[in-house]
Amino acid sequence: MEILKKISENLQTGNAPKVGELVNKALQQGVSPKDILEGGLIDGMNTIGVKFKNNEVYVPEVLIAARAMHAGMDVLKPILSDSGVEPLGKVIIGTVKGDLHDIGKNLVKMMMEGAGFEVIDLGVDVAADKFVEAVKESKTDILAMSALLTTTMPYMRTVIEAIEKAGLRGQVKIMVGGAPITDNFAKEINADGYAPDAASAAEKCKELLKVS
């Protein structure tokens, strides 16, 4: 559909007002919210994700595209829940306690949203009990943690232990990432998944939940 293609293209070039306008227009034309989401917004973010992985675009373009996606989502969100379109899953994300870095975490969040997940962002400097509380409060499929500092990285283990202690470990998959994190470290602390970059993190999410 021509208009969905336009939404995707404008999202990729980061034209936020245009994306909002086109989503409204598509709704007026009777295109279903699900098609707008999948054929327009997710398609655009997906393309950006692939280009990001291939070094065809860089962080600034991803951030600007994500901003345009949000402009579209702002229009679409209220209608989506009414029309019964379900997200692929729910993710809780945060940078662990002691760490104020958020660009990596935010990129992961954007890519996950762009892939069709609902993401609840707890922000930076998040303590273990906050993660536990958030998982308890809503049906969470994935808990994703980020750390940039080697001094805060061990705190991921503390969070996982707190989740275990609260008896929640069986119902949530745990993912970790950030510059100093490795696959080995993830295994060591008993996380379920690790991804080296934001685009792979969204894929890992799908893999862990066995959705596509």
């Binding site: 980061g14 600034p60 373009e61 951030l63 600007i64 901003r67 958020d102 660009i103 935010n106």
Partner: peptide, 11 residues
Amino acid sequence: GTENTAMNTVM
């Protein structure tokens, strides 16, 4: 802010 600065390269 890192994010604003990255976006400002374009915006």
